[in-house]
């Protein structure tokens, strides 16, 4: 509860003190930041721009503006199939990784047990292993066991590298929960099961949602591990990489730009709604 209070207090804190005088030095950081944003955005702008390119076979040089690619995003062979595969892999891996990772995160924060250090190490290692090694290890395993490569092996690999990120994200949320909340639920006659579903889980939802989004974006955009574990199965990043040598169809840019705009819109909307909500929540306090 004090955490909530602190947050409310932090947001209602006095407005930042006005600086006595603007000096030239004060501008260095904002200007630098603006340049950094330009740096971050230019390649994205290129990607979006080239989705409107009237490209022939290769989409490397600007040949003129057209809407054809957007009218017919599946016009190039395989591009939409690869996209659909990526969505499928992303959704399945996210569901599995989020479920497994959330449970582990709760156990790590709420219980003291033998082997906790080992568990933490097991979570940390996949994150500190380069993708190429993860891919090579999984491929070595699949080759040894003669597992046919395809959708299943790709999902198995994606779940692996997503779990650790889910654990870390959800763990942060669980640690920020006052353990007294669960005790209060137990004290108010809630069985452990009821306490979890009525108190812990609802309070973890923001963390779990963040973890799921992270897992999905990691999975959806993964190339290296996918390349090792997919055999002839094609995901969107793999399709783009493979076609890079003979020319990427502009439809790939269309799909990528579409995803970009969609994700951006959702995230900005969440930000604005969250801000409006926190403002509304704050309002009544000031009247007291």
């Amino acid at each position: 509860m004090t955490a909530v209070l602190d947050r409310v207090e932090a947001t209602t804190a006095a407005p930042p003190a006005r600086r006595p005088r603007r000096r030239l030095g004060d501008l260095i950081v904002p200007v630098f930041a603006a340049l950094a944003f330009v740096y971050l955005m230019v390649p994205v702008a290129y990607t979006v721009m080239f989705s409107f390119n009237d490209a022939g076979k290769t989409n490397l040089v600007w040949r003129g503006f057209t809407l054809d690619n957007w009218r017919n995003p599946c016009g190039a062979p395989q591009v939409c199939e690869a996209f659909a595969n990526s969505l499928q892999v992303g959704v399945v891996s996210t569901l599995v990784a989020t479920a497994l990772g959330t449970l582990v995160a709760i156990a790590l924060v709420r219980f003291r047990f033998r082997g906790r250090a080992l568990t933490n190490l097991l979570i940390f290692l996949p994150m500190s292993t380069p993708e190429v090694v993860l891919g090579a290890a999984l491929l070595a395993q699949f080759l040894t066991l003669r597992v046919p490569l395809g959708f299943g092996t790709v999902v198995a690999a994606h779940v692996l590298f997503c779990i650790s990120f889910v654990v870390v994200t959800v763990k942060a949320r669980v640690s920020s929960l006052d353990p007294a909340l669960e005790e209060a639920a137990a004290d108010l006659y809630a069985s452990p099961w009821q306490a979890f579903w009525r108190v812990t889980f609802p309070l973890l939802i923001p963390g779990i949602a963040a973890a799921a989004l992270l897992a999905f974006s990691l999975s959806f955009d993964d190339f290296i591990v996918t390349n090792f574990t997919s055999g002839s199965y094609t995901t969107f990043p793999k399709f783009v990489y493979v076609s890079a040598t003979r020319g990427i169809p502009p439809q790939a840019n269309v799909i990528s730009s579409f995803m970009f705009v969609l994700a951006l819109a959702i995230v900005v909307l969440v930000q604005v709604l969250g801000y409006a909500r926190s403002k509304r929540l704050r309002a009544p306090r000031t009247t007291q």
């Binding site: 909530v4 006052d178 137990a186 006659y189 306490a195 609802p202 309070l203």
Partner: peptide
């Protein structure tokens, strides 16, 4: 017996009100 089985209620130091 466990907490939820006892006819006892607690006012916690941190209040532990459910924020949601």
């Amino acid at each position: 017996t466990r907490a939820h089985q006892r006819p006892v209620n607690t006012v916690f130091q941190s209040y532990a009100l459910f924020p949601h």
